[in-house]
Amino acid sequence: MDIQFFIELFFGGLTRGSIYALIAIGYTLVYGIIELINFAHGEIYMLGAFTALLVAGALGVYGFPTESILLISALVAVIWCSAYGFTVEKIAYKPLRGAPRLSPLISAIGMSIFLQNYVLLAQTSDFVPFPRLLPPMEFLEYIDYIMGPSDFLILIASALSMGALTLFIRFTKMGKAMRATAQNRKMALLLGINADRIISLTFVIGSALAALGGVLIASHMGQVNFGIGFIAGMKAFTAAVLGGIGSIPGAMVGGLTLGLAESYTTGYFSGNYEDILAFAILILILIFRPDGILGKAKVQKV
């Protein structure tokens, strides 16, 4: 076996996997608290990529220096997508608290279709090129066959943001409130936690991470389209389920596992089947071990 090729695939998988993990965290957070598969989450990721593209393009036209453009556009994308996540929750999910379980799911599917077509109508149905914003990094030169500047950025940015999230959940008061709400919403309400605000916060955090993922992947792949959210969302959801939905470390493990699995299948077999692989993993996991790698088995109560 060619060891260099193996390593190359490993890092390719890692890059991919950390993006999946970033999006998967949004699914897992929301599912952990209101047991809803937030179908529109993939679209938030797409909106993030699109917002960053538009802002970066506009800044480029007005002649901002390249280094600041990526930072500003990423920041704008993250802020705006948090707002989108917040709004989506207020419109499509909040009125449905306490409704039968399928109602919010159908509402989420509707929201996803709506957002996709909103971008399609407001912008374009074509693939739009994402400007090259990353400066070449000299210290990466002698390993450039494994890692380009964008891979490096993805690994660093996702590791940092996931680390920050873990610290936030574990050590801040808000994080504690989130964990309490996830464990038992009624009890949390009784203890004076504003559950509505926690749910909104969950959506904001999840959307911010998804937007970050969107910006990173857009600068990595170099093009954006209104439809990229669906497949990315499905894969991230697969990652969340793979790791055990509701668990944050699970989402990270699941994302990396899925990324590596995809990378190796593409490298050693064929790229045609990479999407099928993700869906097949999803189905097998849901059928045979619905609690994922790190999840705890739930006992069904009557």
Binding site: L36, I37, L105, M234, V241, I276, I287, P290
Partner: peptide, 21 residues
């Protein structure tokens, strides 16, 4: 054995696999 949202996702995956195939 699946119910509700998991069923929805599995059938969605099935549909996509069929299309990709």
């Amino acid at each position: 054995r699946l119910r509700g949202d998991y069923l929805a996702i599995v059938t969605l995956g099935f549909g996509e696999i069929a299309r990709l195939a």
